[in-house]
Design a protein around this nucleic acid. Structure first.
Length: 585
RNA sequence: GCCGGUGUAGCUCAAUGGCAGAGCGAUGCUUUCGUAAAGCAAGGAUGGAGGUUCGAUUCCUCUCUCCGGCUCCA
């Protein structure tokens, strides 16, 4: 080996590996039809249409073949070719012919790349000079998956082989370790272990059932959001979970999402739907009377479930469910009040996510002017809404990535991404500025001049969905919740039966101070009970025996240090209360 | 929804065309213990529906769940 691999970009290495993979697949399946093989985060993939389904053993074989090819020190070389040559060279590769047509339609140059004399592919380049520059111990074929040709579900499904590839073995090992760690924190497993939620085949897929501990946690989070909202003038409202189809026809949701609605036919033949969102209902609460400009903004908060008939293949733990609890709120405001109101919501989001130690980044999701058919309203309405968000971002001195085409169909959004303790980014909160629903539902106020003035509507979910947020939080903390939001904060373990009475006194005092306390007395050994409490990831374990009963103290074992600290009961209560107040992480 | 995989006790995993086994948990009894597993006992299961077969947990068909992707996501 020349050792020159370090001079090669990781993209070139990954791209070259994709070609080697295709070569290995072609050797085994000469009739394989090749699609595309791009570079992705952490590696590469290549899509094939093959005569049979691949097995994990096939991957082992391909990987071995790729290493053999690397050893042969094959040069990569490219050349431009004409349309006619391309059509001839790829006559038996229908997907390549499609690509060739697309490229030539766009008047782009066609080129091919050779890997020694063993493989040739339609390719714009970006390769190592020679396979000797590919570190053979830093890649691994990862998994087989199905993928639609051109990402379109109407097209045939191909077999995709994913590979991991890095510049050296350590990076690959680090990545595999990261995957292990992520698996260890998987909320689907931790949630069951920590007894937060469960699923039942009888109830149905994507319909989580919440245990007492899980419900405690949900309520705690929701209450935190509510406290932040209450301080900013929000009031609570509530709405029914089924509704006439008429509401969604008027809002535009029926047209757009009718296939994803759970529908209910009444015995008299009327069509209802389980509500898939709350905004249209809230418009009707606003519309119940006429408002003076002096009454605005009206800020309605409502934590409630919505129901969406998600594709069964999409359901995953708490991340994607069919019964979704939204901590939803809608602000009905004059256009002049928009920036202020959004700013307040932004403050709530910062305070809320800060309490968990999440780092936030912001994305401005805009409409796609090339596809106005996907949106309600006029271009002017959109430009107006988007410029308001842009200027607010500027005022707050934040940099936000702009994402055209990511807007909701009724308005642009500020989407917030949280980076968790493993460095993964999750889309969480969202603020949506909506000038369209007010038009559709004719929402207005009476202004200073006695005229009808069209208002704006701001959609503001802080957690977004409690289910999804919890999936993120469980993995962020690996199930070890900080004291302020741990469903059980303290467990009291009497050394023996003789001290059960004192244990009860301690537990009662803690509960009186609103500290979530357990006294799970069983006839197991003390060691066993401590072990169980540790496995349950409880913040504090209190052990009481003769000494404590005599002195009125408790011996506290902390989750973090496992140290034993003796203190007065009242001192411990103050300590916990302080941590809850400060939301210590 | 699509492609592939998967499903055995509450959990983690064995085994088989002919009586389905273990560890942990849960239950009962004994033990009452000073910081990560005390002892004994009795329990407990082949996701569901059809089919093939003398006999199916095992083979076939359908269906459901879950997992990895794809597509979608108000």
């Amino acid at each position: 080996m020349s050792g020159s691999s370090s001079t090669q970009s990781i993209e070139n290495i990954r791209h070259s590996l994709a070609h080697l993979l295709a070569a290995a697949v072609l050797e085994k399946f000469p009739d394989a039809k090749l699609a595309i093989g791009p570079v992705i985060d952490n590696g590469f993939y290549y899509d094939f249409l093959l005569p049979r389904n691949l097995t994990p053993e096939d991957l082992t074989g391909f990987e071995k073949k790729m290493r053999e090819l690397i050893k042969k020190r094959l040069p990569f070389s490219g050349e431009k070719i004409s349309l006619a040559e391309a059509k001839k060279l790829f006559a038996k590769q229908p997907f390549k012919l499609e690509l060739i047509k697309e490229l030539s339609d766009k008047n782009e140059n066609l080129s091919i790349y050779h890997t020694g004399n063993v493989f040739m592919d339609l390719c714009r380049g970006g390769h190592v000079n020679n396979t000797e520059e590919i570190p053979a111990d830093a890649f691994k074929l990862d998994k087989i998956a199905g993928a639609y040709w051109h990402g379109d579900e109407k097209n045939p499904m191909l077999q995709r082989i994913y590979g991991l590839a890095f510049t050296n073995k350590k990076e690959l090992d680090d990545y595999l370790k990261f995957v292990e760690e992520a698996k260890r924190r998987d909320h689907k497993i931790l949630g069951l272990q920590l007894d937060l939620f469960t699923f039942s085949d009888l109830v149905g897929a994507g319909l989580p059932l919440w245990t007492p501990k899980g419900t405690t946690l949900r309520n705690l989070l929701d209450d935190f959001v509510w406290q932040l909202r209450k301080a900013r003038g929000y009031v609570q409202v509530d709405i029914p979970h089924i509704t006439k189809k008429d509401l969604y026809e008027k809002s535009g949701h029926w047209e757009k999402f009718k296939d994803e609605l759970f529908k209910i036919q009444t015995r008299e033949g009327h069509l209802f739907a389980m509500k898939p969102m709350n905004c249209p209902h809230h418009t009707q609460i606003y519309a119940r009377r006429q408002w003076s400009y002096r009454d605005l903004p009206q800020r309605y908060a409502n934590t409630t479930k919505v129901y969406r008939d998600e594709q069964s293949g999409e359901l995953a733990g708490l991340s994607r469910v069919r019964a979704i609890t939204q901590d939803d709120a809608h602000v009905f405001a004059r256009k002049s009040q928009i920036k202020d109101e959004i700013s307040k919501i932004w403050d709530i989001i910062q305070e809320f996510y800060g309490a968990f130690g999440f780092k936030l980044s912001v994305r401005l999701s805009l409409h796609d002017p090339a596809h106005m058919e996907k949106y309600l309203g006029t271009a002017e309405l959109w430009d107006d809404a988007e410029s308001k968000l842009r200027s607010l971002i500027k005022e707050r001195g934040v940099t936000a990535a702009e994402a055209p085409g990511e807007a909701a169909f009724y308005g642009p959004k500020l989407d917030f991404m949280a980076k968790d303790s493993l460095g993964r980014e999750w889309q969480v909160a969202t603020i949506q500025l909506d000038m369209n629903m007010p038009e559709r539902f004719d929402l207005f106020c009476i202004n200073e001049n006695g005229e009808h003035e069209r208002i704006a509507m701001i959609h503001a979910a802080i957690m977004g969905s409690i289910e999804r947020f919890l999936s993120v939080v469980i993995e962020h903390f690996a199930g070890a919740f900080p004291v302020w939001c741990a469903p059980v904060q303290v467990t009291v373990l009497p050394i023996g039966e003789k001290f059960l009475k004192y244990g009860e006194e301690v537990a009662t005092a803690l509960k009186k101070a609103d500290i979530r306390t357990e006294l799970p007395y069983t006839n197991e050994s003390l060691n066993k009970r401590i072990r169980e409490a540790e496995l349950a990831k409880l913040p504090y374990i209190i052990v009481v025996g003769e000494k404590e009963a005599k002195d009125g103290t408790v011996t506290v074992r902390t989750r973090k240090s496992k140290e034993q600290i003796s203190m007065k009961l009242s001192e411990f209560v103050r300590k916990v209360e302080q941590e809850v107040r400060d939301k210590t992480i």
